[in-house]
Design a protein around this nucleic acid. Structure first.
Lengths: 338, 338
DNA sequence: CTGAAAGCGCTTACAG
DNA sequence: CTGAAAGCGCTTACAG
């Protein structure tokens, strides 16, 4: 049970000083005598007083809340991504005394986001993915509220942070090509996600670097269900495909299923590589070559950017985080264990 | 761009009335002339003024925020559950002009939750799961803040809402037993989750109802990885198991893998049933018998309970929502398509 | 170094 | 039906 909400006024009265003094002792702003300060702080500690952040916010025209926009039209495979992002964001926000308020948007429906900003409930927002045509982002831009995007966008005015999917995909693809693969395919999902394009570009980059590569490559985008994958794999097997790279672990799971049903051996007949290194495939035999991103860090950094921005600090417009290519047994050139 | 934050004062001045009147026109509380009211509302509409909820809250000692506690030590398979819950909660909250603030808790670390409540940032909270020893719940109880739990708990003082896992599991198990199964096993995960116990009870209930059932049943709890499942399945096959029921679709996926590797046919040699009916197994062949819950509705209802509670309405202490058993091809007695 | 006062944008008795 | 005033719990020039 709490002792009926102590206020700054109560303390001032109790201690025989003005509430201005109390406020200063707490905030650390403004000159104040060391002993007065100590006295106040001790009292606060002893009676475990907690500042009313709402009131503070009203006086400062701040909320100490940040908005987190999360897609409602999610895909199971993306869930761990959003979850980990959220972890990083919440952790940092809470460290810097902010809270995280969520707005779920589905398709063009950004009502929840609009509510949060027009109701003055948030100081800034974090977008957790970017689309080629991005309704939430459009809205945020015209609303004028500070925001940072997790993901990439061509719009240089938006503060963005992302893992380097392009280089990651290039490196993975390069690793595979260098073992002499002549027939390779890339399967990806939604082209409306900016990241899909970036990975595709990385895939293409790999060929550009290998001069004199002779062979065929195929790209399938916008595939989002097992049946489609099944057909694609069938066709690829007829063409004697040597390697299939998938843009996410759901697709990869489908590919592996399809290969197994067709009796094709991995990696002897077909090699397989994927993105994200999620728990979906964690137990798969053979272990699957994949790219690993530190998503929680991505969230933390994004949140840091936003909070710095809110505190008027200078922030990097574009941040690119690393990745780790893990070659495993689903490709022939695997290096280490795990 | 917003037109520099209109306030209730500006409007009062502009319209030549008091701000009391404006406030009443907006809130609908207190007597006010129909024409005055209309005039104010029109002005508001025309200049799209939005009430500052924070200020309103301060005056009323409310925040219009609810806290949502989400586990950080999640398991991939549970993610869709939390996501769907969140959907339902956010939707309803937003309809009733509340916002949702998240606190992630991991293990005994409930720091984020504590921050939210001691900082006076939320009016109430929703717990998204229940544990046999539940640190967040303990904290909420002693803090005195109103809350509702999604999931069940023996503590009758807490307002709780859940799907009827016990009956669901009983019905599924009963369906299977009635086709003459003599050897059946149940595999579940974390026993510290209250729901695990409820399902187990439902499983047992089914035997109680079938008088004269002769056979053997085995229960494996706290299994949480593929290797364990693999071993269990191996052993069960030696014992010529006829049916395996799993408590979640991750376990089910592991079981199916293990069966396939052992060359056991589903459902001819071993029948398989599961919980949750998630996308994880959506594409599986044969289709998997499972139980379906409307999780979004669960979230919506939970949120409704909490908001009603906050508005001092009477609310049900314990709500039990339904389920749907979907018999499919992984068991011999499947009924319909899908 | 400290305080009185005004103000953040609302609500709500109280009085008329 | 309407308004003046006090108050929600803070912050912040301004003055001393």
């Amino acid at each position: 049970m709490e002792e009926k909400n102590l206020t700054i006024n109560d303390i001032a009265e109790e201690l025989g000083v003005s509430k201005t003094t109390i406020s200063r002792a707490i905030s650390g702003k403004g000159r104040i005598g060391a002993d007065t300060r100590k006295k106040v702080l001790e009292y606060i500690e002893a009676h475990n007083y907690r500042l009313n952040v709402i009131a503070k916010g009203l006086a400062q025209n701040k909320t100490y809340n940040i908005g987190l926009v999360l897609p409602g039209d999610y895909n199971v495979v993306e869930l761990p991504f959003f979850q980990n992002c959220m972890m990083g964001i919440c952790k940092l926000a809470s460290e810097r005394d902010y809270d995280v308020l969520i707005s779920m948007v589905t398709g063009q429906n950004i009502a929840q986001l609009e509510r949060a900003v027009t109701n003055h409930k948030i100081d800034g927002v974090i977008l957790t993915r970017t689309l080629t045509k991005d309704a939430p982002m459009e809205y945020l831009k015209e609303s004028g509220i500070p925001f940072v995007a997790i993901g990439s966008t061509g719009d240089d005015t938006v503060i963005q942070i992302d893992n380097d999917h392009r280089r990651a995909c290039k490196e993975l693809t390069g690793n595979l090509l260098r073992q002499g693969i002549k027939k390779i395919a890339l399967i990806g999902s939604d082209e409306s996600h900016v990241v899909t394009g970036n990975r595709l570009r990385g895939f293409e980059d790999a060929f550009g670097e290998l001069d004199g590569w002779q062979g065929s490559r195929e790209v399938f985008l916008n595939v989002d269900n097992g049946r489609q994958v099944e057909e694609i794999v069938k066709r690829l097997l007829q063409e004697r495909i040597e390697c299939i790279v998938t843009m996410d672990d759901f697709l990869c799971g489908c590919v592996l299923d399809a290969l197994q049903r067709s009796g094709a051996q991995v990696p002897d007949e077909v090699q397989v590589g994927s993105f994200y290194d999620s728990t979906f495939l964690a137990n798969h035999m053979p272990s699957v070559t994949s790219i690993r991103f530190n998503v929680e860090e991505l969230g933390t950094k994004a949140c840091e950017l936003l909070l710095d921005l809110l505190e008027e600090k200078d922030v990097e417009r574009r941040t690119l985080l690393g990745y780790e290519v893990r070659m495993r047994r689903s490709t022939r050139s695997f290096r280490t264990g795990s």
